[in-house]
Amino acid sequence: MIKHLLIFILLFVNFTCIAQNSFELSGRVIAQTRDTLEVSVLNLSRETGVVTNEKGDFKIDVSIGENLYFSSIQFEPLEVEVTSTILEDPNYMVFLFPKINELQEVLLSSVDLIGIEETDIKNIPLQPYLSAANLGLPQATKPLPTIEERRIYTASSGPLDLLINTLNGELKKLRKLNEWAKLDRLVVQGEQAMAVHYFEEYCGVPEAYISDFIYFCAQDDRYKPLLKQQDKLKLFEFFEEKGPAYKEFRQW
């Protein structure tokens, strides 16, 4: 009996060690738009991440059972659990779908227009503009919650939900996803603040690495306040200052 117990313990320990081994996962992000450059690949379990190259290829350290999160501004996010099948696949591919932005409904008027501006203006019936303000209704002053914030609210809306999602780690994972989403939005703001040639000429950063450079800059506590101030001159000086540090980080 003792012999069998020892064998079971040894097998269990061996299996646990194998499961915890770290591997470098190589893969490629595929999308219909073929615009797979700089898709964020995050290891939620280790809180580390990389970005894809111009072909959509990526390499990241993982272990079996860890969760990978693929996100980009133009694609729907995707979460994948690492399995032995994924690690054994030499041509592992991840398929992402573009985000669909719903357009407002367009109503076609039945009013006949003759092409004369003064006459047409008189023939078009006008309706009073209605808003919460002119109807005397209370107005919302807070911005609408993001998708991530709504998921956190749902996971903690009741005592039982809060307890279950805290114990199974779901709430912690949702909060981490919310942090990454906020970081993504800050990076996009930084990219839109300056022209591409600015990063290349003044910071020494190639166009393919601009997003990665801004992720690097976002780790500095000065970055977020500079974005809020909307002072392009100070932001210009900040990026230029971070250029040499980023090139040293990249070992260029």
Rank of each mutant, 00 (worst) to 15 (best):
I100A: 04
I100V: 08
N101E: 13
N101G: 04
E102I: 15
L103W: 02
L103C: 04
Q104M: 14
Q104L: 09
Q104E: 13
Q104G: 15
E105I: 12
V106L: 05
V106P: 04
L107C: 06
L107G: 00
L108S: 07
S109C: 12
S109Q: 11
S110C: 02
S110D: 08
V111F: 06
D112L: 14
L113I: 04
I114F: 08
I114N: 03
G115F: 11
G115Q: 15
I116Y: 11
I116K: 15
I116L: 11
I116R: 13
E118D: 14
E118F: 03
E118N: 13
T119A: 12
D120R: 08
D120A: 10
D120S: 07
I121M: 05
I121A: 14
K122M: 09
K122A: 15
K122L: 15
K122Q: 14
K122D: 09
N123E: 14
N123C: 07
I124G: 10
I124R: 10
I124Y: 05
I124T: 12
P125G: 05
P125V: 00
L126H: 02
L126Y: 02
Q127A: 12
P128H: 07
P128M: 02
P128L: 04
Y129H: 10
Y129R: 06
L130K: 03
S131H: 03
A132S: 08
N134W: 06
L135I: 00
L135N: 06
G136P: 03
G136E: 04
L137T: 04
L137C: 00
P138S: 10
Q139W: 02
Q139Y: 02
A140W: 07
T141V: 07
T141H: 06
T141M: 07
K142Q: 14
K142E: 10
P143K: 13
P143M: 11
P145M: 08
T146Q: 09
T146S: 15
I147S: 10
I147L: 11
E148F: 00
E148V: 01
E148Q: 09
E149Q: 15
R150S: 12
R150Y: 01
R151E: 14
R151A: 10
I152F: 04
I152P: 07
Y153W: 10
Y153I: 12
T154S: 12
A155P: 01
S156P: 00
S156F: 02
S157V: 04
S157Y: 02
G158F: 11
G158D: 14
L160S: 07
L162Y: 07
L162C: 01
L162K: 13
L163R: 13
L163G: 03
I164M: 15
I164K: 14
I164P: 00
T166L: 08
T166W: 11
L167N: 04
L167E: 07
G169Q: 08
E170M: 08
L171Y: 03
K172V: 12
K172Y: 07
K172F: 01
K172I: 10
K173C: 00
L174K: 05
L174S: 00
R175C: 02
R175I: 01
K176C: 06
L177I: 14
L177E: 04
L177Q: 06
L177W: 00
N178T: 15
E179L: 13
E179F: 14
W180E: 04
W180K: 02
A181F: 02
K182C: 01
K182S: 07
K182Y: 06
